[in-house]
Design a protein around this nucleic acid. Structure first.
Lengths: 229, 229
DNA sequence: ACCTTCATAATTGTATACAGCTTTTCTTTG
DNA sequence: CAAAGAAAAGCTGTATACAATTATGAAGGT
Protein backbone atom coordinates (compact mmCIF):
# COMPACT_ATOMS: atom_id res chain seq x y z
CA UNK A 1 0.00 0.00 0.00
CA UNK A 2 2.60 2.43 1.13
CA UNK A 3 4.30 2.41 -2.20
CA UNK A 4 1.47 2.00 -4.62
CA UNK A 5 -0.47 4.86 -3.11
CA UNK A 6 0.42 7.06 -6.00
CA UNK A 7 -2.87 6.54 -7.71
CA UNK A 8 -5.04 7.26 -4.74
CA UNK A 9 -8.07 8.13 -6.76
CA UNK A 10 -11.11 8.14 -4.56
CA UNK A 11 -13.22 5.16 -5.50
CA UNK A 12 -16.31 6.90 -4.24
CA UNK A 13 -15.85 10.28 -5.84
CA UNK A 14 -17.53 10.95 -9.13
CA UNK A 15 -14.19 11.45 -10.78
CA UNK A 16 -13.04 8.06 -9.54
CA UNK A 17 -16.15 6.28 -10.73
CA UNK A 18 -16.04 7.95 -14.12
CA UNK A 19 -12.39 7.03 -14.43
CA UNK A 20 -13.07 3.37 -13.71
CA UNK A 21 -16.01 3.30 -16.08
CA UNK A 22 -14.13 4.84 -18.99
CA UNK A 23 -11.06 2.80 -18.23
CA UNK A 24 -13.04 -0.43 -18.45
CA UNK A 25 -14.78 0.66 -21.62
CA UNK A 26 -11.49 1.40 -23.32
CA UNK A 27 -9.94 -1.84 -22.13
CA UNK A 28 -12.98 -3.77 -23.32
CA UNK A 29 -12.73 -2.15 -26.70
CA UNK A 30 -16.06 -0.38 -26.34
CA UNK A 31 -14.23 2.75 -27.31
CA UNK A 32 -12.00 2.04 -30.25
CA UNK A 33 -8.51 3.44 -30.80
CA UNK A 34 -8.62 6.85 -32.42
CA UNK A 35 -12.16 7.47 -31.30
CA UNK A 36 -12.65 10.86 -29.74
CA UNK A 37 -14.10 11.22 -26.27
CA UNK A 38 -16.28 14.31 -26.14
CA UNK A 39 -16.68 15.79 -22.69
CA UNK A 40 -20.25 17.00 -23.11
CA UNK A 41 -21.41 13.69 -24.52
CA UNK A 42 -19.81 11.68 -21.75
CA UNK A 43 -21.23 14.08 -19.19
CA UNK A 44 -24.73 13.47 -20.45
CA UNK A 45 -24.24 9.73 -20.80
CA UNK A 46 -22.93 9.33 -17.28
CA UNK A 47 -25.22 11.92 -15.76
CA UNK A 48 -22.55 14.13 -14.27
CA UNK A 49 -21.11 17.53 -15.07
CA UNK A 50 -18.11 18.09 -17.27
CA UNK A 51 -15.79 18.71 -14.34
CA UNK A 52 -15.38 15.12 -13.13
CA UNK A 53 -15.25 14.00 -16.75
CA UNK A 54 -12.34 16.29 -17.43
CA UNK A 55 -10.51 15.11 -14.34
CA UNK A 56 -11.08 11.49 -15.22
CA UNK A 57 -9.77 12.13 -18.71
CA UNK A 58 -6.60 13.57 -17.23
CA UNK A 59 -6.19 10.42 -15.20
CA UNK A 60 -6.68 8.34 -18.30
CA UNK A 61 -4.00 10.35 -20.03
CA UNK A 62 -1.75 9.71 -17.07
CA UNK A 63 -2.35 6.00 -17.57
CA UNK A 64 -1.60 6.28 -21.25
CA UNK A 65 -5.04 5.13 -22.31
CA UNK A 66 -5.88 8.35 -24.13
CA UNK A 67 -4.05 11.21 -25.75
CA UNK A 68 -5.17 14.77 -25.26
CA UNK A 69 -4.62 17.40 -27.90
CA UNK A 70 -5.16 20.97 -26.72
CA UNK A 71 -8.28 22.64 -28.05
CA UNK A 72 -9.10 19.52 -30.03
CA UNK A 73 -10.07 16.80 -27.66
CA UNK A 74 -8.95 13.52 -26.22
CA UNK A 75 -8.62 10.38 -28.27
CA UNK A 76 -8.41 6.73 -27.37
CA UNK A 77 -4.87 5.59 -27.78
CA UNK A 78 -4.23 2.54 -29.88
CA UNK A 79 -1.61 -0.07 -29.19
CA UNK A 80 0.37 -1.74 -31.93
CA UNK A 81 2.10 -5.10 -32.03
CA UNK A 82 5.39 -3.25 -32.00
CA UNK A 83 4.27 -1.50 -28.81
CA UNK A 84 3.58 -4.85 -27.21
CA UNK A 85 6.97 -6.21 -28.14
CA UNK A 86 8.58 -3.10 -26.70
CA UNK A 87 6.60 -3.49 -23.52
CA UNK A 88 7.90 -7.01 -23.11
CA UNK A 89 11.46 -5.81 -23.59
CA UNK A 90 11.01 -3.10 -20.98
CA UNK A 91 9.26 -5.39 -18.54
CA UNK A 92 12.01 -7.93 -18.96
CA UNK A 93 14.47 -5.42 -17.57
CA UNK A 94 12.43 -3.54 -15.03
CA UNK A 95 10.44 -6.39 -13.56
CA UNK A 96 13.66 -8.31 -13.25
CA UNK A 97 14.96 -5.50 -11.12
CA UNK A 98 11.74 -5.47 -9.13
CA UNK A 99 12.09 -9.19 -8.42
CA UNK A 100 15.67 -8.72 -7.32
CA UNK A 101 14.85 -5.95 -4.90
CA UNK A 102 11.70 -7.66 -3.68
CA UNK A 103 13.67 -10.80 -2.86
CA UNK A 104 15.89 -8.68 -0.66
CA UNK A 105 13.18 -6.73 1.04
CA UNK A 106 9.97 -8.70 1.07
CA UNK A 107 8.30 -9.09 4.48
CA UNK A 108 6.62 -12.19 5.85
CA UNK A 109 3.18 -10.66 5.46
CA UNK A 110 3.85 -9.72 1.88
CA UNK A 111 5.11 -13.19 1.17
CA UNK A 112 2.00 -14.69 2.67
CA UNK A 113 -0.25 -12.46 0.65
CA UNK A 114 1.67 -13.46 -2.45
CA UNK A 115 1.21 -17.14 -1.66
CA UNK A 116 -2.45 -16.65 -0.98
CA UNK A 117 -2.82 -14.92 -4.32
CA UNK A 118 -1.22 -17.85 -6.08
CA UNK A 119 -3.43 -20.35 -4.25
CA UNK A 120 -6.53 -18.36 -5.11
CA UNK A 121 -5.39 -18.28 -8.69
CA UNK A 122 -5.13 -22.06 -8.75
CA UNK A 123 -8.63 -22.29 -7.34
CA UNK A 124 -10.17 -20.01 -9.93
CA UNK A 125 -8.32 -21.74 -12.73
CA UNK A 126 -9.95 -24.99 -11.69
CA UNK A 127 -13.28 -23.18 -11.63
CA UNK A 128 -12.61 -21.74 -15.05
CA UNK A 129 -13.29 -18.18 -13.85
CA UNK A 130 -10.76 -16.47 -16.06
CA UNK A 131 -11.74 -12.93 -15.19
CA UNK A 132 -10.78 -13.62 -11.59
CA UNK A 133 -7.60 -15.30 -12.75
CA UNK A 134 -6.68 -12.25 -14.74
CA UNK A 135 -7.38 -10.04 -11.74
CA UNK A 136 -5.20 -12.18 -9.49
CA UNK A 137 -2.42 -12.22 -12.02
CA UNK A 138 -2.42 -8.44 -11.97
CA UNK A 139 -2.42 -8.46 -8.19
CA UNK A 140 0.48 -10.88 -8.10
CA UNK A 141 2.66 -8.55 -10.09
CA UNK A 142 1.52 -5.49 -8.16
CA UNK A 143 2.48 -7.16 -4.90
CA UNK A 144 5.97 -7.74 -6.21
CA UNK A 145 6.28 -4.09 -7.19
CA UNK A 146 5.23 -3.04 -3.72
CA UNK A 147 7.56 -5.52 -2.08
CA UNK A 148 10.50 -3.93 -3.88
CA UNK A 149 10.00 -0.91 -1.59
CA UNK A 150 11.19 1.38 -4.34
CA UNK A 151 9.06 4.39 -5.05
CA UNK A 152 10.65 5.19 -8.40
CA UNK A 153 10.28 1.60 -9.50
CA UNK A 154 6.62 1.49 -8.50
CA UNK A 155 6.15 4.75 -10.29
CA UNK A 156 7.62 3.43 -13.51
CA UNK A 157 5.81 0.14 -13.39
CA UNK A 158 2.64 1.91 -12.41
CA UNK A 159 2.90 4.18 -15.40
CA UNK A 160 3.32 1.13 -17.56
CA UNK A 161 0.52 -0.70 -15.84
CA UNK A 162 -2.44 0.04 -18.03
CA UNK A 163 -0.27 -0.12 -21.07
CA UNK A 164 0.53 -3.65 -20.03
CA UNK A 165 -2.95 -4.46 -18.89
CA UNK A 166 -4.47 -3.46 -22.17
CA UNK A 167 -2.03 -5.67 -23.94
CA UNK A 168 -2.70 -8.46 -21.48
CA UNK A 169 -6.49 -8.52 -21.42
CA UNK A 170 -8.28 -11.69 -22.20
CA UNK A 171 -5.41 -13.94 -23.07
CA UNK A 172 -4.80 -15.86 -19.93
CA UNK A 173 -7.63 -17.52 -21.77
CA UNK A 174 -5.30 -19.23 -24.20
CA UNK A 175 -5.76 -22.90 -23.30
CA UNK A 176 -2.99 -24.18 -21.07
CA UNK A 177 -1.48 -20.76 -20.50
CA UNK A 178 -3.01 -20.26 -17.09
CA UNK A 179 -1.50 -23.48 -15.78
CA UNK A 180 1.89 -22.50 -17.05
CA UNK A 181 1.51 -19.08 -15.47
CA UNK A 182 0.70 -20.74 -12.18
CA UNK A 183 3.82 -22.88 -12.26
CA UNK A 184 5.96 -19.87 -13.07
CA UNK A 185 4.39 -17.84 -10.30
CA UNK A 186 5.14 -20.59 -7.81
CA UNK A 187 8.78 -20.68 -8.80
CA UNK A 188 8.97 -16.93 -8.30
CA UNK A 189 7.47 -17.26 -4.85
CA UNK A 190 9.93 -20.03 -4.08
CA UNK A 191 12.82 -17.71 -4.91
CA UNK A 192 11.35 -15.10 -2.60
CA UNK A 193 11.06 -17.63 0.21
CA UNK A 194 14.73 -18.40 -0.23
CA UNK A 195 15.46 -14.69 -0.29
CA UNK A 196 17.48 -15.38 -3.43
CA UNK A 197 17.67 -12.24 -5.64
CA UNK A 198 19.40 -13.96 -8.54
CA UNK A 199 16.87 -16.76 -8.66
CA UNK A 200 14.00 -14.30 -8.29
CA UNK A 201 15.23 -12.15 -11.13
CA UNK A 202 15.74 -15.17 -13.30
CA UNK A 203 12.33 -16.64 -12.48
CA UNK A 204 10.56 -13.40 -13.26
CA UNK A 205 12.41 -12.59 -16.45
CA UNK A 206 11.78 -16.14 -17.50
CA UNK A 207 8.11 -15.62 -16.79
CA UNK A 208 8.06 -12.52 -18.95
CA UNK A 209 9.78 -14.34 -21.80
CA UNK A 210 7.31 -17.18 -21.51
CA UNK A 211 4.43 -14.75 -21.65
CA UNK A 212 5.94 -13.13 -24.69
CA UNK A 213 6.36 -16.46 -26.42
CA UNK A 214 2.75 -17.26 -25.67
CA UNK A 215 1.68 -13.97 -27.14
CA UNK A 216 3.77 -14.45 -30.26
CA UNK A 217 2.24 -17.85 -30.88
CA UNK A 218 -1.32 -16.68 -30.35
CA UNK A 219 -1.41 -13.05 -31.33
CA UNK A 220 -3.19 -13.78 -34.59
CA UNK A 221 -5.96 -15.69 -32.88
CA UNK A 222 -6.39 -13.12 -30.15
CA UNK A 223 -8.82 -10.45 -31.26
CA UNK A 224 -7.03 -7.15 -31.45
CA UNK A 225 -3.60 -7.83 -30.04
CA UNK A 226 -4.27 -8.94 -26.52
CA UNK A 227 -2.07 -11.22 -24.48
CA UNK A 228 -1.29 -12.55 -21.01
CA UNK A 229 0.88 -11.99 -17.95
CA UNK B 1 8.25 15.06 -31.90
CA UNK B 2 6.08 12.23 -33.03
CA UNK B 3 6.83 10.12 -30.02
CA UNK B 4 7.23 12.64 -27.28
CA UNK B 5 3.90 14.24 -27.98
CA UNK B 6 2.43 12.54 -24.99
CA UNK B 7 2.77 15.57 -22.82
CA UNK B 8 1.32 18.02 -25.24
CA UNK B 9 0.45 20.54 -22.62
CA UNK B 10 -0.33 23.78 -24.31
CA UNK B 11 2.44 26.18 -23.46
CA UNK B 12 0.13 29.11 -23.97
CA UNK B 13 -2.85 27.89 -22.03
CA UNK B 14 -3.24 29.00 -18.46
CA UNK B 15 -3.02 25.43 -17.30
CA UNK B 16 0.27 25.00 -19.14
CA UNK B 17 1.76 28.16 -17.72
CA UNK B 18 0.65 27.35 -14.20
CA UNK B 19 2.10 23.88 -14.57
CA UNK B 20 5.48 25.23 -15.62
CA UNK B 21 5.52 27.79 -12.87
CA UNK B 22 4.69 25.32 -10.11
CA UNK B 23 6.99 22.76 -11.60
CA UNK B 24 9.91 25.19 -11.48
CA UNK B 25 9.08 26.28 -7.98
CA UNK B 26 9.07 22.72 -6.74
CA UNK B 27 12.29 21.90 -8.56
CA UNK B 28 13.93 25.02 -7.16
CA UNK B 29 12.90 24.04 -3.68
CA UNK B 30 10.65 27.05 -3.27
CA UNK B 31 7.99 24.63 -2.19
CA UNK B 32 9.44 22.17 0.25
CA UNK B 33 8.64 18.45 0.40
CA UNK B 34 5.55 17.77 2.45
CA UNK B 35 4.27 21.31 2.01
CA UNK B 36 0.64 21.48 0.98
CA UNK B 37 -0.44 23.30 -2.14
CA UNK B 38 -3.77 24.98 -1.52
CA UNK B 39 -5.79 25.62 -4.64
CA UNK B 40 -7.37 28.90 -3.59
CA UNK B 41 -4.07 30.35 -2.43
CA UNK B 42 -2.32 29.42 -5.66
CA UNK B 43 -5.23 30.79 -7.65
CA UNK B 44 -4.90 34.18 -5.96
CA UNK B 45 -1.12 34.20 -6.18
CA UNK B 46 -1.10 33.43 -9.87
CA UNK B 47 -4.17 35.49 -10.67
CA UNK B 48 -6.22 32.72 -12.25
CA UNK B 49 -9.22 30.70 -11.24
CA UNK B 50 -9.05 27.38 -9.47
CA UNK B 51 -9.78 25.40 -12.61
CA UNK B 52 -6.40 25.71 -14.33
CA UNK B 53 -4.74 25.28 -10.94
CA UNK B 54 -6.49 21.98 -10.42
CA UNK B 55 -5.56 20.78 -13.88
CA UNK B 56 -1.96 21.78 -13.40
CA UNK B 57 -1.88 19.94 -10.10
CA UNK B 58 -3.08 16.81 -11.85
CA UNK B 59 -0.26 17.19 -14.34
CA UNK B 60 2.19 17.56 -11.50
CA UNK B 61 0.87 14.40 -9.95
CA UNK B 62 1.35 12.71 -13.28
CA UNK B 63 4.96 13.81 -13.21
CA UNK B 64 5.38 12.55 -9.69
CA UNK B 65 6.18 15.95 -8.26
CA UNK B 66 3.21 16.00 -5.92
CA UNK B 67 0.92 13.52 -4.25
CA UNK B 68 -2.80 14.12 -4.10
CA UNK B 69 -4.89 12.79 -1.26
CA UNK B 70 -8.65 12.92 -1.88
CA UNK B 71 -10.52 15.54 0.10
CA UNK B 72 -7.30 16.55 1.79
CA UNK B 73 -5.12 18.27 -0.71
CA UNK B 74 -1.97 17.89 -2.72
CA UNK B 75 1.46 17.79 -1.16
CA UNK B 76 4.92 18.29 -2.55
CA UNK B 77 6.61 14.94 -2.87
CA UNK B 78 10.00 14.54 -1.35
CA UNK B 79 12.82 12.55 -2.85
CA UNK B 80 15.22 10.53 -0.75
CA UNK B 81 18.77 9.46 -1.44
CA UNK B 82 17.50 5.92 -1.78
CA UNK B 83 15.08 7.16 -4.44
CA UNK B 84 17.94 8.66 -6.36
CA UNK B 85 19.97 5.48 -6.23
CA UNK B 86 16.96 3.56 -7.47
CA UNK B 87 16.49 6.00 -10.30
CA UNK B 88 20.06 5.44 -11.40
CA UNK B 89 19.53 1.70 -11.39
CA UNK B 90 16.38 2.01 -13.48
CA UNK B 91 17.91 4.48 -15.88
CA UNK B 92 20.89 2.21 -16.29
CA UNK B 93 18.60 -0.43 -17.71
CA UNK B 94 16.02 1.56 -19.58
CA UNK B 95 18.24 4.23 -21.07
CA UNK B 96 20.57 1.50 -22.19
CA UNK B 97 17.68 0.00 -24.09
CA UNK B 98 16.81 3.41 -25.49
CA UNK B 99 20.35 3.86 -26.75
CA UNK B 100 20.30 0.45 -28.38
CA UNK B 101 17.05 1.08 -30.20
CA UNK B 102 18.01 4.61 -31.11
CA UNK B 103 21.25 3.40 -32.67
CA UNK B 104 19.19 1.15 -34.91
CA UNK B 105 16.55 3.68 -35.85
CA UNK B 106 17.95 7.18 -35.60
CA UNK B 107 17.52 9.34 -38.70
CA UNK B 108 20.02 11.74 -40.18
CA UNK B 109 18.05 14.75 -39.02
CA UNK B 110 17.84 13.42 -35.50
CA UNK B 111 21.53 12.72 -35.51
CA UNK B 112 22.23 16.25 -36.67
CA UNK B 113 20.05 17.75 -33.98
CA UNK B 114 21.84 15.62 -31.43
CA UNK B 115 25.22 16.85 -32.63
CA UNK B 116 24.03 20.42 -32.60
CA UNK B 117 22.84 19.99 -29.04
CA UNK B 118 26.25 18.74 -28.00
CA UNK B 119 27.99 21.61 -29.76
CA UNK B 120 25.71 24.13 -28.12
CA UNK B 121 26.43 22.51 -24.81
CA UNK B 122 30.15 22.96 -25.35
CA UNK B 123 29.54 26.60 -26.16
CA UNK B 124 27.53 27.31 -23.03
CA UNK B 125 30.00 25.43 -20.87
CA UNK B 126 32.70 27.78 -22.08
CA UNK B 127 30.39 30.68 -21.30
CA UNK B 128 29.68 29.28 -17.88
CA UNK B 129 25.91 29.43 -18.41
CA UNK B 130 25.04 26.33 -16.46
CA UNK B 131 21.28 26.76 -16.64
CA UNK B 132 21.51 26.47 -20.41
CA UNK B 133 23.84 23.52 -20.06
CA UNK B 134 21.36 21.76 -17.85
CA UNK B 135 18.61 22.48 -20.35
CA UNK B 136 20.66 21.08 -23.21
CA UNK B 137 21.57 18.02 -21.22
CA UNK B 138 17.88 17.31 -20.75
CA UNK B 139 17.28 17.87 -24.44
CA UNK B 140 20.08 15.50 -25.35
CA UNK B 141 18.49 12.66 -23.45
CA UNK B 142 15.01 13.50 -24.73
CA UNK B 143 16.26 13.33 -28.29
CA UNK B 144 17.59 9.85 -27.69
CA UNK B 145 14.27 8.73 -26.27
CA UNK B 146 12.50 10.06 -29.35
CA UNK B 147 15.01 8.47 -31.68
CA UNK B 148 14.23 5.07 -30.20
CA UNK B 149 10.85 5.31 -31.92
CA UNK B 150 9.24 3.35 -29.11
CA UNK B 151 6.11 4.78 -27.63
CA UNK B 152 6.14 2.62 -24.50
CA UNK B 153 9.76 3.47 -23.88
CA UNK B 154 9.11 7.19 -24.25
CA UNK B 155 6.17 6.81 -21.96
CA UNK B 156 8.22 5.16 -19.25
CA UNK B 157 11.12 7.54 -19.53
CA UNK B 158 8.73 10.44 -19.70
CA UNK B 159 7.05 9.34 -16.51
CA UNK B 160 10.47 9.16 -14.90
CA UNK B 161 11.53 12.47 -16.35
CA UNK B 162 10.75 14.91 -13.60
CA UNK B 163 11.72 12.37 -11.03
CA UNK B 164 15.09 12.37 -12.69
CA UNK B 165 15.15 16.07 -13.29
CA UNK B 166 14.53 16.88 -9.70
CA UNK B 167 17.36 14.66 -8.74
CA UNK B 168 19.51 16.19 -11.43
CA UNK B 169 18.96 19.88 -10.84
CA UNK B 170 21.88 22.13 -10.24
CA UNK B 171 24.67 19.65 -10.21
CA UNK B 172 26.08 19.89 -13.63
CA UNK B 173 27.54 22.70 -11.59
CA UNK B 174 29.96 20.40 -9.86
CA UNK B 175 33.31 21.66 -11.17
CA UNK B 176 34.62 19.53 -13.99
CA UNK B 177 31.46 17.48 -14.30
CA UNK B 178 30.14 19.38 -17.32
CA UNK B 179 33.29 18.71 -19.31
CA UNK B 180 33.11 15.03 -18.50
CA UNK B 181 29.46 14.97 -19.49
CA UNK B 182 30.38 16.56 -22.79
CA UNK B 183 32.98 13.91 -23.55
CA UNK B 184 30.53 11.15 -22.71
CA UNK B 185 27.85 12.69 -24.85
CA UNK B 186 30.21 12.82 -27.78
CA UNK B 187 31.07 9.16 -27.46
CA UNK B 188 27.37 8.35 -27.44
CA UNK B 189 26.87 10.36 -30.61
CA UNK B 190 29.82 8.58 -32.15
CA UNK B 191 28.19 5.22 -31.51
CA UNK B 192 25.01 6.50 -33.15
CA UNK B 193 26.97 7.66 -36.19
CA UNK B 194 28.37 4.17 -36.50
CA UNK B 195 24.90 2.75 -36.03
CA UNK B 196 26.40 0.48 -33.42
CA UNK B 197 23.77 -0.61 -30.86
CA UNK B 198 26.21 -2.37 -28.55
CA UNK B 199 28.53 0.59 -28.41
CA UNK B 200 25.62 2.96 -27.93
CA UNK B 201 24.20 0.97 -25.07
CA UNK B 202 27.59 0.72 -23.46
CA UNK B 203 28.32 4.43 -23.90
CA UNK B 204 25.03 5.45 -22.39
CA UNK B 205 25.06 3.05 -19.46
CA UNK B 206 28.59 4.17 -18.84
CA UNK B 207 27.38 7.75 -18.84
CA UNK B 208 24.72 6.92 -16.27
CA UNK B 209 27.24 5.17 -14.04
CA UNK B 210 29.55 8.14 -14.32
CA UNK B 211 26.74 10.48 -13.34
CA UNK B 212 25.93 8.27 -10.40
CA UNK B 213 29.55 8.23 -9.27
CA UNK B 214 29.60 12.01 -9.50
CA UNK B 215 26.48 12.22 -7.41
CA UNK B 216 27.82 9.84 -4.79
CA UNK B 217 30.97 11.89 -4.42
CA UNK B 218 29.18 15.20 -4.17
CA UNK B 219 25.81 14.44 -2.66
CA UNK B 220 26.77 15.88 0.69
CA UNK B 221 27.86 19.15 -0.79
CA UNK B 222 24.85 19.46 -3.04
CA UNK B 223 22.08 21.19 -1.17
CA UNK B 224 19.23 18.76 -0.79
CA UNK B 225 20.18 15.76 -2.83
CA UNK B 226 20.54 17.13 -6.30
CA UNK B 227 22.78 15.75 -8.96
CA UNK B 228 23.61 15.70 -12.66
CA UNK B 229 22.88 13.89 -15.95
C1' DA C 1 -5.65 19.76 33.09
C1' DC C 2 -7.51 16.77 29.58
C1' DC C 3 -10.71 14.86 26.64
C1' DT C 4 -15.17 15.20 24.20
C1' DT C 5 -18.41 17.69 21.47
C1' DC C 6 -20.28 20.81 18.61
C1' DA C 7 -20.11 24.95 15.82
C1' DT C 8 -17.36 27.52 12.53
C1' DA C 9 -13.98 28.13 9.07
C1' DA C 10 -11.13 26.47 5.48
C1' DT C 11 -10.58 23.49 1.59
C1' DT C 12 -11.71 20.25 -1.83
C1' DG C 13 -15.46 18.22 -5.01
C1' DT C 14 -19.00 19.27 -8.37
C1' DA C 15 -22.11 22.01 -11.30
C1' DT C 16 -22.92 25.65 -14.37
C1' DA C 17 -22.10 29.75 -17.13
C1' DC C 18 -19.42 32.10 -20.38
C1' DA C 19 -15.44 32.92 -23.58
C1' DG C 20 -12.41 31.48 -27.27
C1' DC C 21 -10.92 28.31 -30.61
C1' DT C 22 -12.07 24.65 -34.41
C1' DT C 23 -14.73 22.58 -37.52
C1' DT C 24 -18.64 22.45 -40.34
C1' DT C 25 -21.87 24.28 -43.32
C1' DC C 26 -23.92 27.46 -46.17
C1' DT C 27 -23.59 31.29 -48.99
C1' DT C 28 -21.45 34.11 -52.33
C1' DT C 29 -18.55 34.90 -56.22
C1' DG C 30 -15.56 33.79 -60.09
C1' DC D 1 -20.12 24.23 -60.82
C1' DA D 2 -16.07 24.95 -57.92
C1' DA D 3 -13.65 27.63 -54.60
C1' DA D 4 -13.29 30.95 -51.19
C1' DG D 5 -15.13 33.11 -47.36
C1' DA D 6 -18.37 34.07 -43.77
C1' DA D 7 -21.66 32.59 -40.51
C1' DA D 8 -23.00 29.11 -37.24
C1' DA D 9 -22.59 25.11 -34.47
C1' DG D 10 -19.81 22.30 -31.47
C1' DC D 11 -16.32 21.69 -28.30
C1' DT D 12 -12.67 22.87 -25.15
C1' DG D 13 -10.63 26.43 -21.79
C1' DT D 14 -11.63 29.25 -17.90
C1' DA D 15 -14.26 31.50 -14.23
C1' DT D 16 -17.46 31.36 -10.65
C1' DA D 17 -21.02 29.55 -7.58
C1' DC D 18 -22.55 26.02 -4.63
C1' DA D 19 -22.20 21.47 -2.02
C1' DA D 20 -19.70 18.19 0.69
C1' DT D 21 -15.90 17.13 3.39
C1' DT D 22 -12.27 17.97 6.58
C1' DA D 23 -9.68 20.85 9.83
C1' DT D 24 -9.85 24.29 13.61
C1' DG D 25 -11.10 25.95 17.98
C1' DA D 26 -13.90 27.09 21.79
C1' DA D 27 -17.19 25.52 25.37
C1' DG D 28 -18.50 22.19 28.63
C1' DG D 29 -18.11 17.89 31.19
C1' DT D 30 -15.13 14.46 33.71
Amino acid sequence: MAYSEQNELNKYSLTGRVFKQLSDQILNGEYKPGESLVETKLAKELGVSRTPIREALRQLELEGLVVSIPNKGVFVRGISEQDIEDIYAIRFLVEGLAARWAAEKITEEELNELKETVDLMEFYISKGDMDRVFELDTKFHDLIYSASKSRPLCFVLGSLHNFVQRARVGSVKVPGRADKTLIEHRSIVQAFENRDPDAAEKALTNHVLSAKANWLKNKDKLGKGLFPD
